[in-house]
């Protein structure tokens, strides 16, 4: 059974449908890229997949024993207040706050799985992820005093701390320089190769077709869902790629 399965799902804000006709499924180990223009409903779908927003029609099913405590999430914008006092380490560790303690098999019940404090394994996982993202030297710094790109990496480390099975990313490279962007895509490809399922919203169609196994193209409704190879030869795909490349060239001209 698939990890996630959307059947003709739709999402609405105050009765106005933002996106509809969503029928796709994600299997364990997939790397799904969600593409589309601004306002096409990508972030809305993300909220739906996370269970933060209920579908107004259709259904989203989760399978393969996927539970919320195993989802990692990097939001497009985090409404963290300007003056919030928190160190990088505290933020990254908070990715472990929702996870139950690994209890010996058979002895797993709600009470034995609950623990008030982070254990040694939590701290080790947080440390590993900070190291992986090159933010270990920043761990005692104040989160709010970091640059946008550094903050993004802190939040990605937090997301990686929260998950073993599914990682959801909403435009993770926003605000990163080209080098950091490339490193980040490689890192995501690496964790995907290690078995983590990745669902990523991206404006970067080039990276999407380079790394993703599947593409979901939205335009207030689902335009395309299939493998990357199918997308490259589909009319929607060719049109979208043409247009974005044209736009990218235009930008270069202006510079």
């Amino acid at each position: 059974m698939a990890l996630l399965k959307c059947s003709n799902a739709a999402f609405a804000y105050d009765g106005h449908t933002a996106v509809e006709g969503l029928t796709f499924s994600v299997s364990s180990g997939d790397y799904l890229c969600i593409v589309g223009e601004n306002g096409s409903g990508k972030s809305t779908l993300m909220k739906g997949l996370l269970g933060l927003k209920a579908p107004s029609a259709g259904s989203i099913e989760t399978g393969d024993g996927l539970i919320a405590a195993e989802i990692g999430y990097l939001p497009q914008q985090t409404q963290v207040q300007k003056d919030f006092p928190a160190s990088v380490e505290e933020v990254v560790l908070s990715g472990r706050a929702g996870r139950p303690r690994a209890a010996p098999a058979g002895k797993r019940n709600a009470l034995s799985a609950w623990r008030p404090y982070y254990g040694r394994s939590d701290k080790a996982i947080a440390r590993d992820n900070m190291e992986r993202l090159g933010i270990l030297p920043l761990r005692h710094r104040c989160y709010r005093e970091l640059s946008g790109g550094q903050q993004q990496r802190v939040l990605l480390a937090r997301a990686l701390c929260a998950t073993k099975s599914l990682l959801l990313l909403d435009e993770p490279t926003a605000g990163l320089d080209p080098m950091a962007t490339r490193d980040l895509y490689r890192l995501i490809a690496e964790v995907n190769a290690q078995g983590l399922t990745v669902i990523m919203v991206s404006h970067d169609i080039g990276a999407a077709v380079q790394y993703a196994t599947h593409i979901l193209h939205l335009q207030q409704r689902q335009l395309f869902f299939g493998t990357t190879a199918e997308y490259l030869t589909s009319p929607e795909g060719m049109r979208f790629i043409d247009r974005t490349e044209f736009a990218a060239e235009g930008v270069e001209f202006n510079v």
Partner: peptide, 17 residues
């Protein structure tokens, strides 16, 4: 720790269970 997580980023906390 959970109070910190919920105070810092309620959406993330909710999404991670």
């Amino acid at each position: 720790h959970r109070i910190f997580a919920v105070t810092f980023d309620e959406n993330f906390a909710k999404a991670t269970g």
